[in-house]
Write a protein that binds this DNA or RNA. Sequence first.
RNA 1: GCGCGAUUAGCUCAGUUGGUAGAGCAACUCAUUUACACUGAGAAGGUCGGGGGUUCAAGUCCCUCAUCGCGCACCA
Length: 742
Amino acid sequence: MQKDNTTSDTKMQQNSIGIDPKLLKPYDPKETEDRIYKIWEESGFFNPDVCIEKGVTDKDAKPFTIVMPPPNANGRLHAGHALFVTLEDIMTRYHRMKGERTLWVPGADHAGFETQIVYERKLEKEGRSRFDMKPEDLYKEIYDFTMDNKKFMENDVRRLGASCDWSREKFTLDPDVVKTVQQTFDKMFKDDLIYRGDRIVNWCAKHQTSLSEVETEFEERTEPFYYLQYGPFVISTSRPETKFGDKYVTIHPLDKRYAEYKDGQKIDLEWINGPITATVIKDESVDMEFGTGVMTITPWHDQVDFDIAERHNLDKEQIIDWKGKLLPIAGEFEGIHISKARPMIIEKLKEKGLLVKIDEAYKHNVKVCFKCNTIIEPQIKDQWFVKMRPLADRALDAVNSGKIKFYPDNYEKIFRYWMTNTIDWNISRQIIWGIPIPAKICNLCKKGFSDLKDEMTVCPCGGELRKDTDTFDTWFSSGQWTLLSLGYPDTKDLDIYHPTSVMETGRDLIFKWIPRMVIFALYLRDEVAFNNVYLHGLVNDEKGEKMSKSKGNVVNPIELVDIFGTDALRIALVVGNTPGMDLALSRDRIKGYKNFANKLWNITRFVFSSLPEQFKKSALNTQDAEIMEKFDIEIKDITSDMEEFRFYLAAEKIYHYIWHTFADEIIENSKPVLMGSDEESKTSRQTLLLEILEKSLKILHPFMPFVTEEIWSMMPVRNATHNVAGGPVENKKLLMVEKWPK
RNA sequence: GCGCGAUUAGCUCAGUUGGUAGAGCAACUCAUUUACACUGAGAAGGUCGGGGGUUCAAGUCCCUCAUCGCGCACCA
């Protein structure tokens, strides 16, 4: 081993320019990456202002902006994060090299509900509960916990090579962010876009909070389905425990079977806890085909029933309390949790002869909390709601007029569908970890008021006002993220960098996040939030299966970086990964690209060692000019791929060119020329090899920034901007701010 | 129920405006001190899910069916 190194060492030194001894060993990402990242960060070039100041970017250059989807500050990065960092960094580096005024704003998300759950689990392990703590203490603890973790997340982003401007980093609970979000609430309240109302919300009894539609999931359950005698009717239900207060029986107005019963007709009948008087309601929402075509309604605990009750102005009564226990209306069942009450109620119905039959295997979907899988109990609750219709219409207009383009384009349809069918958005959350809603609520008339300055004490009705203790839904603040991370309401950066150029994020956020950002930017600044939306798919394991903790197939990207190097991971995530499509990430795949990094390293060694000590570039002869021209055509092709967001193709093309054209053909065919005695051909060929290497490094840089920058630092002198033996030199240009080849 | 996506080599996937089917990995044959074994050369492998249509020409456009995946909605 030792001997081998010595021989090649002497050989190299004899007939070539000074070569960095590092080049004589295989490429070592571990030794390189942190060092290079530090050089980049210290150069200041992640910040477009510095680029202008140092003359790297023209101050009139076209801006290019990406706002980073802020990773959850409470945890480490997962494979999906590695993909988004890679894609956004590719775009950022490419546009920076094109000379554009390029800004990538990093961020960190407090991730309200999610983080609180993580912290609650921690409390649970310690035998504590948030319900026994003072709100301020809990907030402080979660804050410290999050801030500790935030550093790890940021460091992970750095290890992935992200060339984002850390000086502009925003955290979703930064004081200015909190202030602005509260001001937005105030503005919307004054513009009559926010109202306080008693409406059905998704209530999670475990977490003691309401949830938006995107925080709930459907789960298929097979449960018994009960047919009950309700006076002259047979009604059906899967939830007999909600039926105590049912005093309205609804029928479709055109249902001939029940034509004899008139709207508003009173019927006396025997029910679970004794005789009641039921009222017949005719409503078109009743499905004649389903069950018996007759249903009783429970407006407090069902959206559809609530809507019917609203239409006919019917009474609404709470049956189940906030912990999931039955209220006094349930009579003898009062205080029993609904999960235990059902069989008891069925037993009683049976005894009373009210149970007609049971379908044992009724398949249906139930709504569950997306975090704890607890069945959601719809409840009527006094909450803040955003009127979505007028806002969504503006978003639709923006998309229809082509101001926002989607990659892949079929997501535009999905976006449209969501904007067309949106319902009012509940923004109140009963959790601590979030931005407080700056509002007061009247104890008497129950009206709510925005009160930014916290100065109102008495309601116009004379009632006493209490402070709203709720916080905003996370998406209320992250919906304003393109604005907030650019300093809104301050316009210094906004005027330059907004609308942002690209919003790159996971395809699952097409509902949760994308529409809200469009809406808020249009509302607050009369601009779209971004001109392009690039959606990536999921990163799955090598078998194509979704990564999950329960399956134990979760891959930590930093672990892969440790083994294969960041560059290898990055390009493995990109090649062949079309937008919107899921990717199966295998170690073999990454290993192949680790080999590629080394191949490039060896190409460099060959090129450098074939140059004489005193080398000056010459003009290319006809044959070499032709080879160069072919590469230039390829570069043009790759450039248009970059412009059209086809990174999966661009990456594959440069990979293929470097390995199979440059190394396998051009270098192999150069050997006889370089060994020959025709000095003119030799110099031409040496020039060619050096130029192809230079251009290759530039094209490859956005994809594999570390190895390319490292090699660039060893490039031999040209125009006195490079030194011979490598290492940082003053005024030396970094590859990251070199110009993209034309 | 409505919508979206997928179906191409053993595996993972590309295939941009229709113009002779591609890559990576795996497997196969050969090369063995080479810039690089983290290598090179070569060969093999596909009626592009089925059926129909448009066209001089279809993996690509249209219709239809099947299978898989995902999303949304209803669910008394």
